[in-house]
């Protein structure tokens, strides 16, 4: 659990984060979002003490951050950044096994762990373990970055625009992989993005910030259906109900085919339904059951 109590961070005259109160539950994904300069990255970087707050306290596991030794705190918090920051002089497996190495694991165990993680993030260990970062594509490097963050099985994961630097198709695949991994590993994740669709797709909770002030903190559905003020309403946009469709994932949709390994959402189902000759189509749900889907049912599924 990560708790913010009245956290304020200033850069000279400018207040980057202003009196933030927020709790990130264990095993949930909290997405920080907002326009540039809203303080979302600053908030993230205070969690692993790359930055220190000027006022207020942050608690991790009911213990104030200032009572942790920064280096050993960071060993328990995986960190993924947009520029990936892989160490260019180390091979892929050495990069992944970096935190285990800092924790003093034996080499054979580190190698084994690196292979496991390459599997988890969907890269073939045979092909990738001995490459150097410069030999990877953007998407591959980002996967290795995630693998590195997960290597020592840290309970916490911080991600700063982790999928921002790759092309849209790769981004969609990475987002899906991340969701799959998260559904298995149940880490406590804080993720920064400026992409609302990404936030809706990945988040259990969205924290929408503006000028250092938290505007609304709630589930994607809450943010989309009941914005608390004009700023939130504008930020989620007039097509917010369409975005809601993306929060509902399905097992299969008749006539739909997407990229390898990707799954359809209610939005894809609606698109199929609009072009279907009948008033309803068959979809498979996540639990494997089948259902006839029509417009009324879609409305029910979006507005719980």
């Amino acid at each position: 659990m990560i708790r913010f109590h009245g956290v304020t961070k200033r850069y000279g005259e400018k207040t980057a984060v202003d009196g933030l109160d927020m709790t990130v539950e264990n095993g949930s994904v909290c997405v920080l979002i907002g326009p540039s300069g809203c303080g979302k990255s600053t908030t993230l970087r205070m969690i692993n003490r790359l930055l220190e707050p000027d006022e207020g306290t942050i608690e991790v596991d009911d213990k104030a951050l200032r009572d942790y030794d920064p280096a050993s705190l960071r060993l328990r918090i995986g960190y993924v950044i947009q520029s990936v920051g892989l160490l260019p002089h180390m091979r892929v497996w050495q990069n992944i096994a970096l935190v285990p190495r800092l924790l003093g694991w034996e080499k054979p165990r580190r190698r084994e762990r690196a292979d496991e993680l390459l599997d988890i993030v969907g890269l073939d260990p045979e092909e990738y373990r001995d490459k150097y970062p410069a030999q990877l594509s953007g998407g591959e490097a980002q996967r290795v970055g995630v693998a590195r963050a997960l290597a020592a099985d840290p309970p916490y994961l911080l991600m700063d625009e982790p999928f921002g630097a790759v092309d849209p198709l790769t981004r969609a695949t990475l987002q899906q992989s991340f969701r799959d991994i998260q559904s298995r590993l149940k880490k406590t994740v804080v993720l920064v993005t400026h992409d609302l669709d990404e936030a809706i797709y990945l988040a259990d909770r969205i924290a929408l910030m503006r000028d250092g002030v938290l505007q609304q903190f709630g589930s994607p559905a809450e943010i989309l259906t009941s914005p608390v003020n004009e700023f939130v309403r504008e930020f989620v946009g007039s097509d917010r109900m369409l975005r809601m469709l993306n929060t509902v994932e399905l097992g299969a949709v008749d006539g739909w085919s997407g990229a390898d390994g990707s799954r359809p959402t209610l939005r894809d189902a609606l698109s199929q339904l609009l072009s279907a000759p009948e008033r309803s189509i068959r979809v498979g749900l996540n639990d494997g059951s089948q259902e006839e889907l029509d417009f009324d049912r879609i409305r029910e599924m979006v507005l719980p």
């Binding site: 790359l50 705190l73 060993l75 990936v84 920051g85 892989l86 935190v99």
Partner: peptide, 20 residues
């Protein structure tokens, strides 16, 4: 970015110096 990522991985100053 490489320097910071070493720091964020939990390297001490000394480890960062020798390993990065």
């Amino acid at each position: 970015s490489v320097r910071e990522s070493g720091q964020a991985m939990g390297m001490t100053r000394r480890q960062r110096f020798w390993m990065v």
